[in-house]
Simulated scan of single mutants.
Amino acid sequence: MDIRNNTGISKFLLLGFSEDPELQPLLFGLFLSMYLITVLGNLLIILAVSSDSHLHTPMYFFLANLSFADICFTSTTVPKMLWNIQTQRKVITYEGCLSQMYFFILFSGLDVYLLTVMAYDRFLAICHPLHYTVIMNPQLCGLLVLVTWIISLLHSLLESLMMLQLSFCTEVEIPHFFCELNQMIQLACSDTFLNNMVMYFAAVLLGGAPLSGVLYSYAKIVSSILGISSAQGKYKAFSTCTSHLSVVSLFYCTGLGVYLSSAATQSSHSSAVASVMYTVVTPMLNPFIYSLRNKEIKRALMRFSGMAALKG
């Protein structure tokens, strides 16, 4: 397929956060640090889960997949932004912009669906503990992850193919630090009605349905926990899902906050700054949230670091 829009435009300009030369070293150091922490933290989660047989359970299998998705999620936007800051260039090619948008939609969708699958896993573990091991067998776990990948791939492919139909009249300046779908549609000079319809329909169907599933799962979880007689039993049951609930709240609250605030203020610059919360900050905090209150993850990381030291 020839990736080219109707007007033959070859590049866009990513305006980023600030044009002040004095702020560029600060922005570069800040985002480089956050990116390295994100990659290292999530990579440690993956290594801990894969190296420790005690963590070969559905919950940690989904967690390792979430960590992989988070690494890829931030890697679609931050490295290009760092390169632009370092080289003092804001250019991104048309093909590069489409590729960035494709992978951003892919891995953001994957994050959403994996969080939904993890909520379903916690629902079965707490509400149906006797049937949990039978239902959440390795075949079902693999199938659930495969389905999340297929849905994400098809959605991102659809949005990218729809974008190929749009025309851009001049050298387009994108008031963001990456090629964000909504911004791209707004900057097109051709009819965007169908693109907007597909985008909003996908947001409601592929965003609202997972959120409804998460809310339903936790409503049932809370109801089951309240039915436990002992305080120790309640604490143990609730502690198994607090980390996931924290990540879900952080991801959805920041993501919804960005789009609601941008719709209210119509400020592209404030939207770009707010987008940092769910594109960079949330993936960076996920490993800390899952490891700080999780004794099994801590033990696995200690065993892994001990084995690495012995081999070294």
Rank of each mutant, 00 (worst) to 15 (best):
E19S: 13
V222P: 02
A219C: 13
N196M: 01
M184N: 10
P129Y: 00
V276L: 14
Y290C: 07
G233D: 05
I151L: 10
V49G: 07
F31M: 07
S33R: 13
F61Y: 07
E180C: 01
L310Q: 13
T57D: 11
L27W: 15
G233C: 02
G208E: 08
L63K: 01
M199P: 06
L158K: 01
K295M: 02
G109E: 10
D70I: 01
S53F: 14
H155L: 13
M302I: 09
S246M: 14
G257I: 10
H155C: 15
G41D: 05
A274C: 08
D70N: 15
A308T: 08
N5M: 04
S305T: 11
S270N: 06
M136I: 15
N42G: 02
K295W: 02
T7E: 15
V258Y: 08
F107E: 04
E19Q: 14
F68D: 05
R303E: 10
L260E: 13
I85E: 06
M277A: 07
F304W: 10
C253V: 09
S67I: 00
Y216V: 10
F251Y: 14
G208D: 06
R89V: 13
S212C: 11
A237M: 11
L98C: 12
K234I: 06
S108N: 04
Y35L: 07
D111M: 09
L130E: 13
L245Y: 14
K234N: 07
Y278L: 08
M101F: 08
L30A: 15
N6Q: 11
C97H: 12
A69Q: 03
P283Y: 02
Q183Y: 15
Q100A: 00
P79H: 12
S53L: 12
Q88P: 00
S67E: 03
T74F: 04
I126G: 03
L40G: 05
L205T: 05
N65W: 07
Y35K: 03
S229Y: 09
F168L: 05
I151C: 12
S51H: 06
L15F: 07
G312I: 14
L292W: 09
M197A: 15
L260K: 12
N5Q: 08
M59F: 01
A272T: 04
L140G: 14
L153R: 01
F104K: 04
I185T: 05
L256W: 14
T77I: 13
T93C: 02
I185K: 06
D70Y: 12
L260C: 10
A300F: 14
W83C: 06
Q266D: 15
H131C: 14
V214L: 12
L143S: 15
L187D: 01
